[in-house]
């Protein structure tokens, strides 16, 4: 009873809440880091150094008037933010934050579940997330959002191909689709896959920037061109859902990158006995540190680079990243077969 029901439920509650809090603080992190990059201070007023800013933001967004444009498709307009948010959250079901540990005398796994098609599950759930953006643009019945949602869907579909192909290369290395299995494979190979698959890793990082609509690929919400993009007509909590979904997706891709390319919860050089004094650090801390590095990178890129144009984005995706990803995949396959 406890093992089958209470513990999973508890884990789900913890992960969901941690994610949502993490997402709001991700926003603060972004504002702070960008502010520092631009010789500003960032939020300073709510709490010391603006530490309570996310809470103030959340309260503000919840209290705001929720406007539905008169000529919008009301039904679709309402579900679009939900469709955006749900996939971003349910992906966490298969993210392994750590291995099996004993907690209060019980063996507990630090992941909600480990299904044998975990990676495929992430990819497929993420592909459903596109609907939120497309439908938001369509349902607003407004031109700028429509243009943005067309951009968004074309972009997401294109880069999904490249990203998925790099994932396949990793799967070839690990021989399993299970997220936990992939970490274990890196442990037994004594190698983080980022070093075995540098090209795949590079394409994955670029592709994931595009898939999460982050700079320099933030065309769907290009404020300067499309006045906010697909969520132009949204306000209040519905807007907040889009916002949260974007940051939740960032955390997802960081977690996936950590798991697939940087050994998940493993400490650096897990088989080097000389470093075993590091073992007092819990495994999930390593996971969080590695993910944080990625998140920081996302923010850093946003503060540095200008934005791509739509046609350049497409050219980069189809003419460079996808062929490279395919070549990498074929090469990986040949090497694997040669080694076996």
């Amino acid at each position: 009873m406890i093992d089958g029901f209470v513990i999973p439920l508890l884990k789900i509650v913890i992960v969901l809440n941690a994610t949502l809090v993490g997402v709001t603080y991700m926003v603060l992190l972004e504002r702070k880091v960008i502010a520092w990059a631009q010789s500003r201070l960032g939020p300073m007023r709510v709490g010391p150094h603006g530490i309570l800013q996310p809470i103030a933001d959340a309260v503000k967004l919840m209290l705001k008037e929720d406007i539905t444009p008169a000529r919008a498709d009301k039904w679709v307009f309402t579900v679009a933010p939900i469709i955006s948010m749900v996939p971003a959250l349910i992906v966490y079901a298969v993210i392994p934050f750590g291995p099996e540990v004993s907690l209060f005398g019980r063996q507990v796994t630090l992941y909600i579940t480990d299904i044998n098609v975990g990676l495929l599950y992430i990819v497929s759930v993420a592909s459903v997330g596109v609907y939120g953006i497309i439908l938001a643009g369509y349902a607003s019945n407004s031109k700028f959002p429509l243009l943005a949602s067309l951009r968004a869907s074309a972009q997401l579909i294109s880069y999904e191909v490249a990203v998925t192909l790099t994932l396949v290369s990793v799967v070839l290395m690990s021989g399993t689709l299970s997220m936990v299995g992939i970490v274990r494979a890196q442990e037994s190979a004594h190698l983080w896959f980022a070093f075995a698959q540098p090209l795949a890793f590079g394409i994955f990082v670029i592709g994931s920037l595009a898939e999460t609509n982050r700079a320099p690929f933030d065309l769907p919400e290009a404020e300067q061109e499309l006045t906010g993009g697909f969520h132009t007509e949204y306000s209040g909590m519905r807007f907040a859902l889009f916002f949260l979904a974007e940051y939740a997706n960032m955390i997802v891709v960081s977690s996936v990158a950590t798991t697939l390319f940087f050994g998940g919860w493993l400490r650096p050089f897990p088989n080097w006995a000389a470093l075993s004094f590091l073992d007092f650090i819990p495994s999930w801390t390593w996971f969080l540190i590695k993910s944080f590095v990625f998140l920081y990178f996302f923010v850093w890129v946003r503060a540095t680079l200008p934005r791509y144009r739509y046609d350049q984005l497409m050219r980069l995706g189809w003419k460079l990243l996808i062929p490279l990803a395919i070549a990498n995949l074929v090469l990986t396959g040949i090497i694997r077969v040669a080694l076996l």
Partner: peptide
């Protein structure tokens, strides 16, 4: 058949119907 399920979502729900939607909207 979890593999088939994931592929069903990925290919049909996430891929093909998005293209349908494109056509319908355009």
């Amino acid at each position: 058949a979890p593999f088939l399920a994931a592929i069903q979502v990925l290919v049909y729900a996430g891929g093909i119907v998005v293209l349908y939607l494109f056509v319908v909207m355009l």
